Computed example of a mutant assay.
Amino acid sequence: MADQPKIHPTADLELPPTVPLVPPGAPASDKATSPLRHQGPPVIIPSRPPRTRSCCCRCLCWTICLLVVLLFVVGAAAAILYAVFQPKLPEYSVQKLRITDLRLNIDLTLYAKFEVQITANNPNKRIGIYYEKGGWLAVWYENDKLCQGSLPIFYQGHKNVTELNVRLSGQTRSGRTLMNALQEQQQTGQIPLTLNVNAPVAVKVGRLKLRKVRILGKCLLVVNSLSTSNPVSIRASDCSYRLKL
C-alpha cells in the first residue's frame, strides 16, 4: 500500500485573530497591556481665578467712585458758599509811626521803642473776623528786627474799619553798626522800613465760627526820620496780604 500524504491543518484566514483573555484576578499592569483597552486624551479642567482678587478690584473701584463724588460735592459746596458770601481778605494801612526811644546801650545793643497806628478794614458784608491771641506786629530795617509788639484781641464786624494803636519794643545786637547805618540813611531823608503783620483770626459766617487761620501782611515803608524829637513822616507805603491755613 502506498503511503498516503499527511494533511496538516492550516489556519483559517477569515477568522479574527484570537485575543488572549486576561484572567479576572490578573494585576492592573496586565490589564493595561491588553490591546482591547483604549486610553483617550487627558481631560483638562480649567481653573477658576481666585475670588478674593475680584473682590479687591470691586472695593477699589467703589472707593475711587466715592472719593470722586465726595470731591465733587465739596467743590460744589465751596463754590456755592463763595458765590453767596464773596469772602475778601481784610486790608491794613499804616497811618502813623512815632519813635519814642532809640538809643545805644552800654552792651552795644540797640534799643528801639515805636508806636504804630494801623487801620484794619473788613470789606466783607456777611463775614465777621475774630482777632485771636498771639498776633504780633514787627518793624525791620533790612535784615535786623528793630522792635515787636502784640496785636489786640477783638471782634471786627461786617464792613467795619478799626484803628489799632500798637506799642513795639526790642533790642538788637550789633547796635553800633546798625545805628551808624540808620544815621547815614537819615541824612538822605529816605529810610526804608518793613512792617510785618501776623494775625491769627477766626472767621464768623452767619452764626458759625470757623477754624482759626492766619493773615500775613507785609508793608514796605519809607520814612524821613527816626528821631524822637521830630515827627516821622511816611513818604511811601506798599502793603500786601495773604492767607495761611
Rank of each mutant, 00 (worst) to 15 (best):
F114N: 00
L151G: 01
L146F: 07
I106D: 11
H158R: 14
Q117C: 01
Q117R: 06
N124R: 03
P87D: 12
E91I: 09
K145E: 09
A83I: 13
C65M: 10
Y131G: 05
V84P: 09
S150F: 07
F85G: 03
N105D: 11
Q117V: 09
F85Y: 15
T119L: 14
Q86W: 10
G157T: 01
L71C: 13
L81S: 14
N122Y: 06
N121L: 09
G134E: 10
L151K: 01
D144Q: 08
R98E: 08
C147S: 14
C147T: 06
E132I: 04
H158F: 11
K125L: 14
L81Q: 10
N143Q: 09
A77H: 06
E132H: 12
L108D: 15
L89V: 02
L108P: 05
E115P: 01
K145T: 01
F85L: 14
V68W: 07
N143W: 01
P123M: 05
P90W: 03
Q156L: 02
L67R: 05
G134K: 08
D101A: 11
V116Y: 02
P87K: 12
A78T: 11
Y111P: 03
E91Y: 09
Y141F: 15
E115V: 10
L104M: 13
A78W: 09
Q117G: 00
G134L: 10
A76L: 11
K113N: 15
L146A: 05
L102G: 02
K88P: 05
G157C: 03
E91C: 00
L137N: 07
G149D: 02
D101K: 14
Y111H: 15
F85R: 10
I99V: 15
L104V: 05
E115K: 07
R126F: 13
H158M: 14
Y111N: 12
C65E: 06
A112N: 08
L97N: 01
I129H: 00
G134V: 13
V73Q: 05
L137H: 05
A76C: 11
P87I: 12
K125R: 14
L108V: 15
Q86E: 14
A120M: 09
W62H: 05
A79F: 13
I129Y: 04
V116N: 00
Q117S: 07
V68G: 08
P152K: 03
L71D: 10
L66T: 09
N105R: 15
L89M: 12
Y141V: 00
I106Y: 13
A76P: 03
K145Q: 14
D144C: 00
L67E: 06
E115H: 08
R103C: 06
V69C: 10
A83C: 15
L81E: 11
T63F: 08
I64P: 04
L71T: 06
V116A: 08
Y111K: 13
V116T: 13
C61R: 05
P123N: 07
L110F: 13
D144V: 04
E132Y: 05
A79T: 15
G75E: 00
S93D: 02
V84D: 13
I80H: 12
L137S: 09
A83N: 15
Y92M: 06
G157A: 02
A138N: 02
G157R: 01
P123R: 05
S93P: 00
Y92V: 07
F114M: 08
Q148S: 10
F114T: 06
I80P: 04
L97S: 03
S93G: 03
K133W: 12
I127H: 04
T100K: 10
Q86V: 12
W62F: 07
